[in-house]
Simulated assay, not measured.
Amino acid sequence: MSLEKTLAQLEASVAKRNPESFPKRAAPTSSTDKVVQLPLWSEFRRGIPNDLVRGALFTVGNARMPRAYRKSMVIASLGSIEITYTGEELRQDDEDVFLQLVHLARVSPLGKEVSFTAHSILKALKWPTNSRSYERLKETITRLQATGLELRSPHHGYSGSLVRDFAWKQEDSGAPSRSWTVRLEPRIAALFDNVSYTQIDWQQRLELGTLAKWLHSFYYTHRSPLPMKTATIRKLCGSTTKDLSKFRQLLRDSLQELLDVGFLSKAEIERGSDLVHVTRTSG
């Protein structure tokens, strides 16, 4: 069975359960075109490559502080993941937007334009639908487009941007349109194989604060998370909180958020060893 037919059957199966989730798929331009496409997941999930959220690529930086510009910076990452990054610092709000763009792109061949309204993105993110948010969204997508990322792990290598390009049209009045298009790099699909990406509960994420969002993504990539020192988590999440005791309190509060939304069933910071123990809720 061809790839196109397999994808069509998968989409039809999911769309039958949730018909509003899937726009019509663009057909390949010829029978010999190779379709490169992301996996399909439900409307209530968001997919992310594990390697992108097991470190400080998307930091927990303070929204009140200017973003640093990074040139060929080695990103703190877990284990054997090596990431070198050039571009403006990415934070959890950038991850939110990237998750939503990838979600929209999953039903079209990668490299094809993905069209959407800015209003629909803002609603999905639960951002206010005002002019300031429109500008913030545009700046965020532009930042994702201007990234230079080199990733190496035992199973994958990738060099490129997170968003290939971003465009919008001008209205007759001269004002910028709020109907936008993006394209993702087709090669990024390699990071979404069956064992290298995670489907995150979107509603849980939207209810969380900055550090809790980072922990949510990070622990989602581990079925049975191993204990980890508080100082290690501080490094991996890109926190600039120098006082470890202050960060430890922020961490406690964020772990409680994960308990409150039902993502974790247990969480504690062990006295003496300073090891963070968490247990994910089954299911």
Score class of each variant (00 low, 15 high):
residue 155 H to F: 08
residue 276 V to Y: 00
residue 193 D to V: 08
residue 241 T to Y: 05
residue 153 S to I: 04
residue 247 F to G: 02
residue 75 I to W: 02
residue 168 W to C: 05
residue 18 N to V: 10
residue 8 A to Y: 13
residue 235 K to T: 08
residue 269 I to H: 02
residue 137 L to R: 04
residue 153 S to V: 05
residue 22 F to D: 01
residue 229 K to Y: 04
residue 257 E to S: 07
residue 170 Q to S: 13
residue 113 E to I: 11
residue 59 T to Q: 05
residue 36 V to Q: 10
residue 269 I to S: 03
residue 180 W to D: 02
residue 61 G to L: 05
residue 193 D to C: 07
residue 125 L to R: 06
residue 80 S to K: 09
residue 55 G to A: 07
residue 96 D to A: 02
residue 113 E to K: 13
residue 10 L to H: 09
residue 246 K to G: 09
residue 5 K to N: 10
residue 48 I to Q: 00
residue 130 N to H: 12
residue 81 I to P: 03
residue 95 E to P: 00
residue 54 R to L: 12
residue 165 D to L: 09
residue 137 L to S: 11
residue 220 Y to M: 07
residue 7 L to I: 12
residue 68 A to F: 14
residue 91 R to E: 09
residue 110 L to P: 00
residue 3 L to G: 10
residue 179 S to N: 10
residue 258 L to H: 01
residue 88 E to Q: 13
residue 265 S to E: 08
residue 193 D to Y: 11
residue 22 F to W: 15
residue 143 R to S: 11
residue 24 K to D: 07
residue 106 R to A: 12
residue 42 S to A: 08
residue 130 N to W: 06
residue 248 R to N: 14
residue 41 W to A: 05
residue 265 S to D: 09
residue 154 P to L: 15
residue 210 T to D: 13
residue 13 S to L: 09
residue 4 E to N: 10
residue 3 L to Q: 13
residue 146 A to V: 00
residue 5 K to A: 08
residue 240 T to S: 15
residue 235 K to F: 05
residue 266 K to N: 12
residue 230 T to K: 07
residue 19 P to S: 12
residue 252 R to H: 12
residue 86 T to C: 07
residue 60 V to D: 00
residue 93 D to R: 10
residue 12 A to V: 09
residue 205 R to L: 14
residue 263 F to E: 03
residue 259 L to H: 03
residue 102 V to G: 07
residue 226 L to A: 14
residue 218 F to W: 03
residue 77 S to Y: 02
residue 25 R to G: 00
residue 47 G to Y: 04
residue 215 L to K: 01
residue 108 S to N: 11
residue 180 W to C: 12
residue 73 M to H: 12
residue 81 I to S: 07
residue 206 L to E: 09
residue 228 M to C: 11
residue 266 K to E: 15
residue 270 E to Q: 15
residue 140 T to P: 06
residue 98 F to A: 06
residue 21 S to M: 14
residue 108 S to P: 01
residue 229 K to T: 06
residue 201 D to S: 11
residue 24 K to T: 09
residue 134 Y to G: 04
residue 282 S to A: 04
residue 273 S to G: 03
residue 164 R to Q: 09
residue 235 K to S: 06
residue 48 I to L: 06
residue 41 W to V: 08
